[in-house]
């Protein structure tokens, strides 16, 4: 496992550099002069030149690339053009809110989705299965912002149990959790649907396998057959789906943060877009890329832990 982990960690760095290169190229080939875009059409040539100089756009391309790479990898993402504050600091300030939201929705997805999926597979074509399948289909059909609005109407307005605007005080864990409930539910319910459906499908496949027959022939109790022999094998596709949707979840959190007027990376992005904060956008792209690469790393390590065959390939 150690060798596999090191190998997998090693391959993360080239991936990260490749992603950063793509970001760099996209920014350069996007039409328009960033300086003009920032300052507006009526800016004087002098101001534009000064800004280009400040942004380092007058340096040779390779030199720009080198600075961009080394800065990004050392965590120096420049200063916001609007506030003048360090991009990294602005990000770190709101990051806990986004991480809270993402992690909470994954946890909801896993602790509800996996048992539901297993039950649906074990009692296949029974009432439990039908209810699980229909509700998860509904869960997938509702966009998260719609679920969010329904949840606000129900549990913040009709029953005023939770806040409409979730702006948590990070230093107070109770307040943090209290503000997290509705946003996490709106994202988490979709996660539940995805996880439950994947678990059900892979569990049905696992339960039909020959080794399940072997386990039963040994006299294994039903719970051991389902958990140790069935689920241990069925979890691998579930990990894939969770890893895949972790990336999508980070994107989806943008919408939820706006609906709940919640601080986070999503609101930062929208603000940066509106204010043409180029350095902030570039920095956020780097941060997102970093998270996606990290997610994939964690997913692969989880594979290694759940399937002994992965380590030897």
């Amino acid at each position: 496992m150690l060798r596999y982990t090191l190998k997998r960690l090693g391959s993360t760095i080239p991936t990260l550099i490749a992603v950063l290169t793509v970001i760099f190229v996209i920014i350069r080939i996007a039409p328009g002069d960033p300086a003009i875009a920032i300052l507006g059409d009526n800016a004087s040539q002098q101001a534009i030149d000064a800004l280009r100089d400040r942004l380092g756009l007058n340096e040779p391309l390779l030199e720009q690339y080198w600075y961009f790479l080394t800065d990004a990898l050392t965590g120096n993402l420049g200063n916001s053009l609007v506030s003048g504050r360090s991009v990294l600091n602005e990000v770190l300030e709101v990051l806990p809110h986004t991480l809270d939201l993402t992690i909470a929705s994954i946890i909801i997805g896993v602790i509800v989705g996996i048992p539901v999926g297993i039950l649906a597979a074990v009692y296949r074509n029974g009432p439990v299965d039908y209810v699980a399948r229909i509700t998860s289909l509904l869960g997938l059909s509702f966009p998260s912002f719609y679920t969010a609005i329904l949840l606000i109407l129900a549990f913040a307005i009709h029953f005023p149990w939770f806040p409409v605007i979730s702006n948590a005080n990070l230093s107070d864990p109770g307040d943090r959790l209290y503000n997290l409930v509705l946003p996490a539910l709106s994202l988490g319910l979709i996660m539940v649907a995805y996880v439950a459906r994947t678990t059900r499908a892979s569990m049905i496949e696992a339960l039909g396998a020959d080794y399940i027959r072997t386990a039963r022939a040994k006299g294994a109790p039903a719970l051991v057959v389902i958990a140790r022999h069935g689920f241990r094998n069925a979890i691998i596709p579930v990990i894939t789906v969770i890893g895949l949707y972790l990336g999508i979840l980070i994107g989806n959190s943008v919408i939820i943060e706006i609906v709940f007027n919640r601080p986070g990376l999503g609101k930062l992005i929208v603000g940066a877009l509106e204010q043409r904060d180029y350095t902030m956008l570039q920095g956020l792209m780097v941060i997102y890329a970093f998270f996606i690469v990290l997610t994939n790393l964690v997913t692969d390590l989880a594979y290694g832990m759940s399937d002994p065959r992965v380590k030897y390939q």
Binding site: A209, Y211, R213, A215, A217, K218, H229, D307
Partner: peptide, 18 residues
């Protein structure tokens, strides 16, 4: 699995891979 036991045709798939 105690007094009566059984072995199956496919040794490739009859053992739990994980």
């Amino acid at each position: 699995g105690n007094r009566l036991a059984m072995i199956f045709q496919e040794p490739m798939t009859s053992l739990n891979p994980v």
